[in-house]
Amino acid sequence: MIWLGIDTANTPLAVAIVKDGQILAEEVTNIKLNHSGGAMPAIERIFTRAKLTPKDLNAIAVSEGPGSYTGVRIGVTIAKTLAWTLKIPIVGVSSLKTLAANIEYNPHIICSLMDARRQNVYAGAYDGSNHLATIVEDGHYSMDGLLQQLVVTKRPIVFIGHDVELFWETIISVLGEKALRAPYTVDLPNAAQLIHLAQQQELPAAEDVHQFVPTYKRIAEAEANWIKEQKEKAKND
Score class of each variant (00 low, 15 high):
residue 49 R to K: 13
residue 171 I to D: 03
residue 169 E to K: 15
residue 147 L to S: 02
residue 35 H to K: 08
residue 230 Q to A: 12
residue 4 L to C: 00
residue 15 V to P: 00
residue 150 L to G: 00
residue 123 A to K: 01
residue 89 P to R: 10
residue 26 E to M: 10
residue 186 V to Q: 08
residue 147 L to I: 05
residue 17 I to P: 02
residue 229 E to D: 14
residue 22 Q to N: 15
residue 71 G to M: 09
residue 37 G to Y: 14
residue 27 E to Q: 15
residue 94 S to P: 07
residue 111 C to F: 03
residue 232 E to I: 10
residue 155 R to M: 08
residue 132 L to P: 01
residue 165 E to S: 10
residue 222 A to C: 13
residue 118 R to F: 08
residue 198 A to G: 13
residue 123 A to S: 15
residue 187 D to P: 00
residue 87 K to R: 10
residue 116 A to F: 01
residue 178 K to W: 07
residue 139 G to M: 09
residue 222 A to N: 10
residue 236 N to L: 14
residue 131 H to I: 02
residue 1 M to H: 11
residue 92 G to C: 06
residue 95 S to V: 09
residue 148 Q to R: 15
residue 116 A to C: 01
residue 182 A to G: 09
residue 18 V to N: 01
residue 196 H to M: 11
residue 4 L to V: 06
residue 12 P to K: 07
residue 221 E to W: 12
residue 104 E to H: 10
residue 187 D to G: 01
residue 34 N to W: 01
residue 31 I to K: 15
residue 218 R to S: 03
residue 17 I to W: 07
residue 148 Q to I: 02
residue 9 A to D: 00
residue 141 Y to M: 12
residue 233 K to T: 10
residue 8 T to V: 07
residue 71 G to R: 04
residue 146 L to E: 03
residue 11 T to D: 02
residue 129 S to M: 04
residue 68 S to N: 13
residue 119 Q to R: 15
residue 147 L to C: 04
residue 228 K to W: 05
residue 76 V to Q: 02
residue 26 E to L: 07
residue 189 P to M: 07
residue 162 H to I: 07
residue 228 K to L: 11
residue 217 K to A: 09
residue 93 V to N: 04
residue 18 V to Q: 12
residue 162 H to F: 12
residue 111 C to H: 04
residue 70 T to N: 11
residue 181 R to G: 06
residue 58 N to H: 13
residue 206 A to N: 06
residue 11 T to P: 02
residue 83 A to H: 06
residue 122 Y to R: 06
residue 110 I to F: 01
residue 184 Y to T: 14
residue 11 T to N: 11
residue 123 A to T: 03
residue 48 T to V: 03
residue 195 I to G: 00
residue 19 K to Y: 11
residue 210 H to D: 09
residue 22 Q to H: 13
residue 75 G to I: 06
residue 20 D to F: 04
residue 137 E to K: 14
residue 146 L to W: 03
residue 95 S to Y: 10
residue 47 F to D: 04
residue 162 H to N: 14
residue 8 T to C: 05
residue 89 P to G: 10
residue 60 I to T: 11
residue 131 H to T: 07
residue 118 R to Y: 14
